[in-house]
Design a protein around this nucleic acid. Structure first.
Length: 503
DNA sequence: ATGTAC
């Protein structure tokens, strides 16, 4: 390691500038790979296959500018969790592994006008009531029990279905990425098996790192943006982190197998089978995109039902209407998706995308922006930022571990130039689930959190608590510090857990 | 992440 390079066991990164590192283009790489991280985070990132994977990603046809690894990057299926890959939507490809198994895993934050004082002494009652009323854990059981026809409606209509069926109010849609619906969804592109898995899971948290957390706002770093978001110190908020459950998982699996079979030519060009991709314009690329959009809609309805049920739980516990408690959706943002987006891309003399320094002009290009474990972070003024937040930028919600709290950021000024409008999505794991279960015991973790931090955790399984112990995660403060310093997602507020329910 | 294994 020198001032300008970082040696990571066989892969040498060159420092472009503070927090920007590059794996130079070589061999069959189509572009360089970039890692946005501090030296401290790089020391952790280099411990697994993250760097190799982000390098592999640059082999995908149509990769534009560079494959990008976020400060919270870690190893995933083929493509790192914490990766952004913008692939040309005309001449490139789309890759299910670069979206992730949990299609539209994401987070939403709901505000309240309660303060920490209002809750103290009632944490147990609240956590018990949430746990009893919000389905969680592996397998079936959701807030809505329905048939496949209902699933199909949800797949195509997204949160609009929830609105029509009394699980949402109009404003909920406005404060959701894409207003809670991907219109290019087609339920007929989702397998019967996936729909069958989904029909018993409409409105359910799931397991693993998914949770519902009641939190208090401990810091507001930017008063003006905090104001626009309706956040102030000591306020109680609710954070919901979950995805598309078995339906999304099945959909990812279905299309990976089909793409592996039908696009072997492309597969053979790639260094890792897990990056299997369908060429833009192919039938499977179109089908996967429509299916993925449908699974995205399912996940938004899932988070919506859980949020609305949480309003009802608060109504019972605090004996007031949710409107009186000001329980409005701040924002819902996905962190496992791909989307056709138009971005300004540097183009060389032959009209092909080139690195910015070599560009003779910039052109608007349509790209499949894959964000896997990465959050959209559009800056102020972007037309896709809801009107209420347009002047300050899109809210970005970064969940931390259950002992460390979470952050609210706003899309930064540099995000469009550096990351196709994206930033990190969380703390990132430090150790595997298996390793975590050897290091921790769920009951001990729970007792310690309650006694030392006054955090009340209730889970279906002790193993899940061990797997999610605060110590298995990277330092979320450092991840957010780097995002803020790069100007891709700026710090707005920090929260700390009060009650947490999980699978 | 996931009815935690093709």
């Amino acid at each position: 390691m020198t001032d300008t390079t970082f040696d990571a066991d066989g892969i040498t990164l060159e420092k472009v500038r503070e927090y920007v590192w590059e794996v130079p283009q070589e061999g069959d790489m189509r572009t360089p790979a970039r890692v946005l991280a501090s030296e401290a985070l790089l020391e952790e990132i280099k411990e697994d296959k993250t760097l190799e994977q982000i390098k592999n990603t640059t082999h995908l046809p149509g990769i534009t500018n560079h494959a990008i690894c976020m400060p919270d990057g870690h190893q995933g299926y083929g493509f790192p969790v914490g990766g952004v890959g913008a692939l040309d939507a005309e001449n490139g490809c789309i890759s299910p592994g670069a979206v992730g198994y949990d299609i539209n895993c994401g987070v939403r934050m709901m505000r309240t006008n309660l303060t920490y004082d209002d809750l103290q002494g009632r944490e147990e009652e609240l956590v018990d009531s949430l746990f009893a009323n919000v389905p969680s854990g592996l397998g079936g059981g959701g807030i809505v029990k329905a048939g496949v026809d209902t699933v199909e409606e949800i797949l195509e209509r997204g949160v609009d279905w929830a609105l029509e069926n009394g699980h949402a109010v109009e404003e909920d849609l406005l404060h959701c990425e894409d207003e809670g619906v991907r219109t290019e969804a087609d339920a007929s592109k989702i397998s019967q098996k996936a729909k069958d898995r989904g029909k018993n899971q409409i409105g359910s948290l799931g397991s693993g790192n998914h949770f519902l957390e009641v939190q208090r706002v401990t810091d507001v770093f930017d008063d003006a943006v905090g104001d626009a978001y309706g956040l102030e110190e000591d306020q109680i908020v609710v954070l919901i982190h979950c995805g598309s459950r078995g339906l999304g998982h099945q959909t990812c699996n279905d299309y990976l197998r089909k793409i592996e079979q039908q696009h072997q030519g492309l597969l053979n060009q790639l260094p890792d089978k897990e990056l299997a991709a369908a060429p833009a314009g192919s039938q499977l690329a179109e089908d996967y995109y429509k299916a993925m959009n449908a699974a995205i809609n399912f996940a938004w309805v899932n988070r919506q039902l859980i949020m609305h049920r949480t309003r009802q739980v608060f109504e019972r516990v605090f004996d007031r209407s949710w409107e009186e408690m000001d329980m409005h959706l701040l924002y819902d943002v996905a962190h496992n998706i791909a989307k056709k987006e138009t971005h300004a891309v540097g183009v060389g003399p032959e009209g092909r995308p080139v690195r910015d320094g070599d560009a003779v002009e910039h052109e608007e290009r349509e790209l499949y922006v894959h964000r896997k474990g990465a959050t959209r972070a559009f800056p102020a003024g972007h037309p896709e930022v809801p009107k209420a937040y347009r002047d300050v930028g899109q809210p970005v919600i970064i969940p931390g571990s259950m002992g460390a709290g979470s952050y609210v950021l706003r899309g930064g000024e540099n995000s469009m130039d550096l990351t196709f409008g994206s930033t990190a999505h969380g703390a990132g794991r430090l150790m595997s689930r298996t390793q975590a279960k050897n290091e921790y015991w769920g009951g001990d973790v729970q007792d310690e959190l309650e006694q030392q931090e006054q955090i009340y955790v209730k889970a279906q399984s002790g193993a899940t608590v061990a797997e999610e112990a605060p110590g298995v995660y990277k330092d979320v403060d450092e991840v957010v510090r780097v995002s803020d310093a790069l100007g891709i997602g700026d710090k707005v507020a920090r929260t700390f857990p009060v009650c947490n329910i999980k699978g």
